[in-house]
């Protein structure tokens, strides 16, 4: 049982992290990048829960997961707020054109 949970959980986490980083690396749309960040965060949360479960401290895992969700939501909200402002003042959400600051 534990062994199976460990495997399934691990694979899921790795898939989530992989998808998230893949999204960060290739997507050009800012909203999609924020979504990718969220996917990454879900992977991390799952990792916390799984770690707690493996150690038999499910309650701690849950409370940590909740905290991360809250923190992560705030980050997402700020990111979306910025995205709105960027759309309004830069006229684009394409990260390729958001590269005026360089060199």
């Amino acid at each position: 049982m534990t062994l199976e949970l460990w495997n399934v959980g691990l694979v899921t986490i790795l898939v989530l992290l992989g998808v998230g980083f893949y999204g960060l690396l290739i997507s050009r749309n800012l909203i999609k990048m924020v979504v990718a960040l969220q996917i990454l965060a879900k992977g991390a949360i799952l990792a916390m829960v799984l770690a707690a479960k493996l150690q038999g401290w499910t309650v701690i895992g849950q409370s940590m997961a909740l905290t991360v969700i809250v923190a992560d939501t705030i980050v997402a909200v700020i990111a979306m707020a910025m995205a709105v402002q960027i759309r309004r003042h830069c006229g684009t959400l394409d990260v390729q054109s958001l590269s005026n600051l360089r060199r």
Partner: peptide
């Protein structure tokens, strides 16, 4: 070296990975 500072978010994350 300034060329490495691409200003592109994708590249910046690539550096992290």
């Amino acid at each position: 070296l300034r060329g490495t500072q691409t200003g592109l978010l994708n590249w910046n994350t690539a550096y992290i990975v």
